[in-house]
């Protein structure tokens, strides 16, 4: 199958302009016979929203602008980042990612880990999600993560334990540290963790990071795809916008699991029992 990572620079607070960008890229991806196109975290809104959160929030089930994107995915899949305000949860805003396939919203993930500290202040403006679930995508089982979700140890484990063939992370990761090579120092951290998770999980790891700058912060790009067992399939440039297109073969998940027996030998029940004990009596 063919994958595209849309390393774009969304316009802060301008949903209409960003929808147009998404539609253009979906169109471009379709022309290249792409099966799955992944957009970055908060790609429909920009990242540094602060109080703009409530102005750009939408309900994917009813918002006519979002429906344009959903309609445009006929015959392919897309991961789209946006601010969610659902009718059941009015007044609460979530940093969310939708998996859309063949003009249907298949799954919506709400970011669980909201970074707050240093340059980050997400928990000041967003409500946290509380669940990680995999879902059936047209080409296999997939799990979504949003930026910091991926850096918290357990998140990708849960997707792995529930059978993900693909762990898809969308991100608005700022670049920090300029002593190194032709990329930010933080980009190395992301890539290293992506590579490691592709070993641990024997699944594909897809990471789409945005570019551009907001309020002086430059987003680092450096999107990547790792095949099971640490094989780098594609990598986007740092800083510059790019549509990173590559081919992957989901049969590699089977091959990976025959070669590395981690999945066969996994014991989620042992992990669960230990976690349950830790949660109930952390001092034990």
């Amino acid at each position: 199958m063919k994958i595209a990572l849309a390393q774009i620079a969304p316009k802060l607070g301008d949903v209409e302009a960003n929808i147009d960008t998404h539609l253009e890229i979906i169109d471009k991806a379709r022309k290249q016979k792409v099966d799955l196109v992944c957009f970055p975290e908060l790609g429909l809104t920009g990242y540094t929203l602060k109080d703009l959160v409530e102005e750009v929030a939408l309900d994917p089930a009813s918002d006519p602008r979002f429906r344009r994107i959903v309609a445009a995915t006929k015959g392919l899949s897309a991961v789209v980042g946006f601010v969610l305000e659902s009718p059941e949860d009015r007044g609460l805003y979530y940093n969310a990612a939708a998996f859309i396939a063949d003009s249907k919203v298949v799954h919506v993930h709400r970011k669980v880990f909201l970074p707050t500290g240093g340059i980050f202040e997400e928990a000041k403006f967003f409500a946290p999600g509380r669940d990680f679930r995999t879902f059936k995508a047209p080409f296999g089982r997939a799990g979504l993560l949003i930026c910091r979700d991926f850096l918290q140890y357990g998140s990708s484990y849960v997707h792995y334990a529930s059978g993900a063939d693909l762990i898809i992370c969308i991100s608005a990761g700022p670049g920090r540290g300029v002593a190194g090579g032709q990329a930010f120092e933080t980009s190395r951290m992301w890539e290293l963790m992506g590579e490691a998770v592709s070993y641990f999980s024997t699944a594909f790891v897809l990471y789409t990071n945005r570019v551009g700058s907001e309020d002086g912060v430059t987003f680092a790009g450096g999107s990547f795809v790792f095949a099971p067992g640490g094989r780098l399939v594609a990598r986007g440039s740092s800083i510059d916008p790019e549509l990173v297109v590559c081919r992957i073969d989901l049969a590699d998940v089977r091959e990976g699991r025959r070669k590395w027996l981690f999945k066969r030998d996994e014991k989620p029940e042992a992990i669960w029992r230990s976690l349950e004990r830790i949660v109930r009596a952390p001092e034990d």
């Binding site: 802060l12 607070g13 540094t48 109080d51």
Partner: peptide, 10 residues
């Protein structure tokens, strides 16, 4: 607590 980004809507 009236907090908007510097680059808002530009």
């Amino acid at each position: 607590d009236f907090l908007y980004p510097y680059d808002r809507g530009k």
